[in-house]
Design a protein around this nucleic acid. Structure first.
Lengths: 265, 265
DNA sequence: CGCCGAAGCGAACGGTGTGCGCAAGTGCGA
DNA sequence: TCGCACTTGCGCACACCGTTCGCTTCGGCG
C-alpha cells in the first residue's frame, strides 16, 4: 500500500526513469554520514587490519561509491583521526569521590586502555602515525577525567599531568607491543605456544646466559595470555607504587608545613 | 692505463656494443647490496618520513631500477624489518662491572632508545606494524645486554625480564608520542610554541578545571624541548625508584634467609 | 673460448588515494 | 504549486604504488 502511494507520488512529474522498481531508491537506505562511515571503518579494521582499509572497499561496504565518502571526510588521514578518537569513546574512566581510591581508579583506566588496544589491534599503528597527542573530543575527555582522578587524590596539577603521561605512555607502549606480537602470530598462522617453541632457539643462541634459558622454558608451561597480563600488571604496579610514595610524601610535607605555622607548635 | 687494459680485455670478444665510453660501466659504481639498500632507506626515511619510502624512489636514489631491489630483499615489509633492526645497531648499552651502577646504566639505555626514536621519528610507526618483539640480531643483542645489566645488579631472571619490558614499553610509548607530536608540528609547519598557543583554547574548553589552565600557561613560558625531556625523565625515575625498592627488599630478604641458616643465628 | 648462473631492469597488472565535473535528489522561498 | 539553489552521490581519470615475469647483460669458471 505504501508502494502504491509512492508510485502515485512520483510517477506524474517524470515518466522516463523506468519503473519504480528499477529506479534506485537511494533515500530508502539511510544516508551516508560521518558516523556511519567511521563505525564501518572500525568494523573493517577490526576484521581485516589496517592495510585492508581502503576507501573503495569501505565505500562498497556502505553501499556507496568510493569517492562518495569524500563528501563527509576530507581525506583518509582525517578518517583515521576520527576513527582513533572514536575508540576513546569506548574507554570507561571512573569518577572517584574518596581520594584514597585513586590507585584503583588509575589501575582501572590502564586496563580499560589496554583492553581497547587489544580489541582493536591496529590502534597502536594508528596512534603512531596520527600523533596521539592530537586533540579529538573523546581523547580530551578521557585525559581530563583521568587527570581529575589524580588531582582529587591530592596531586598537584603539574604532577598529575606528568603522572598520567607516564601511565598512558607505558600502557600504550606495552599494548602496542602486545598487539603487534599477537598480529604477527595471526599473520603466520601459529598458536602462541607453538611459535614460541619455534623461535626460542634463535633467541637463545645470541643470549648465552643459561639462566635465561631456564626461565624461558619455565614460561612455556604457563598460559601465555595469563603471562602477558601478569607482565603488564607488573609494570603498572611499579609505576603506581612510586606514585603512591610521592603522594604520601607530599601530603606529609603539607601537614608538616601547616603544623609549623600553627600556634600549637 | 687501467682503461686501456679494460679495452684490451673486452674489445676482442665483442665489437658491436658501441665503444667503451658509451657502454654502461655498471660494475664501476659499487653493486647493489642489502646493506646499501637498508642504509639508503634509513636516509630516505629520516629525510622524508615513512610515507615517502617507495621502492621506486629508493631504487632511483641508488641509481637502480625499482625492481632491482627485489634481488636482495623479498618485499617491502621485509625491508622495513631490516631497517628496524638496523636502528638497534645504533643503541649503546653500557656494560657494568659494579652491580650498584645498574640504575645509571638503565637510565642511559632508556635515553639511548629515546634518542634513536627521535632521530628516526618513523621508528614508532614501524615498530607498531612490524611487531617489535620480532627477532632481528641487533634487537636480540640489545635486549640481552640490557638484561645482563639487571641480572648482575641482583635481579632474578624473571624479574629482570619484566623490568626491562616495563622500561622499554614506557620508553617506546613516550618516544612514539613525542615523535608523533613533533611530526604533526612539522606537517603543519608550526613552531612548537605557536601551535601550543593555537590549540590551547580548544583543549581548555573541554577541561573546565581552572588549575589546568594556570599550569598550561605556566608551561608556555618554558623551553618546550626541556619540558619534554623533564616529562620523560619523570616517568623513567618513577619506574627506576620502584625497581630500586624491589631490589633492596630482595637483597635484604636474601641476607635474612642466609643469617637464619647460619650457625651464628 | 664458451657457457651458466646471477644481477639488473622494462613492461605490465591490479590496486591505491583523490580531484573534477556532472547527475540526481531535497528542501525552501515565492 | 512551481522553481531554484544547494547538498549528496558517483563515474572517470590521474599519478603512484608493490610486485611478477621474462628478457638482457655481465662476471667468473671450466
Amino acid at each position: 500500500m505504501n508502494i502504491d502511494a509512492d508510485a502515485a507520488d512520483e510517477a506524474p512529474p517524470k515518466a522516463p526513469p523506468a519503473s519504480v522498481w528499477t529506479r534506485p531508491q537511494r533515500r530508502q537506505k539511510e544516508q551516508l554520514t560521518r558516523e556511519r562511515i567511521v563505525a564501518e571503518a572500525i568494523r573493517l579494521l577490526d576484521a581485516d587490519g589496517l592495510e585492508a582499509l581502503s576507501m573503495r572497499t569501505l565505500g562498497q561496504r556502505l553501499g556507496a561509491g568510493a569517492t562518495s565518502l569524500y563528501r563527509h571526510v576530507a581525506s583518509k588521514d582525517e578518517l583515521i583521526e576520527l576513527v582513533a578518537d572514536e575508540i576513546y569513546a569506548e574507554m570507561e574512566v571512573p569518577e572517584i569521590s574518596d581520594p584514597a581510591s585513586w590507585r584503583l581508579a588509575v589501575h582501572a583506566v590502564a586496563h580499560t586502555l589496554r583492553a581497547a588496544g587489544l580489541r582493536h589491534m591496529w590502534l597502536g599503528q594508528v596512534l603512531g602515525q596520527v600523533g596521539m597527542t592530537y586533540v579529538g573530543p573523546h581523547v580530551v575527555d578521557v585525559t581530563s577525567r583521568s587527570l581529575a582522578i589524580l588531582t582529587t587524590a591530592g596531586f598537584s596539577m603539574e604532577e598529575a599531568t606528568k603522572a598520567m603521561g607516564t601511565v598512558s605512555s607505558y600502557v600504550l607502549g606495552a599494548t602496542t607491543a602486545e598487539a603487534g606480537w599477537l598480529m604477527a602470530l595471526r599473520r603466520n598462522g601459529y598458536e602462541e605456544r607453538d611459535w614460541l617453541t619455534i623461535i626460542g632457539p634463535t633467541v637463545m643462541e645470541s643470549a648465552a646466559d643459561s639462566g635465561l634459558t631456564d626461565f624461558y622454558l619455565e614460561q612455556l608451561k604457563r598460559d601465555p595470555e595469563q603471562v602477558r597480563v601478569e607482565n603488564f600488571d607488573y609494570g603498572l604496579v611499579l609505576i603506581l607504587d612510586s606514585l603512591q610514595a610521592r603522594l604520601t610524601a607530599r601530603l606529609a610535607d603539607q601537614a608538616n608545613q601547616e603544623s609549623e605555622t600553627l600556634p600549637g607548635r
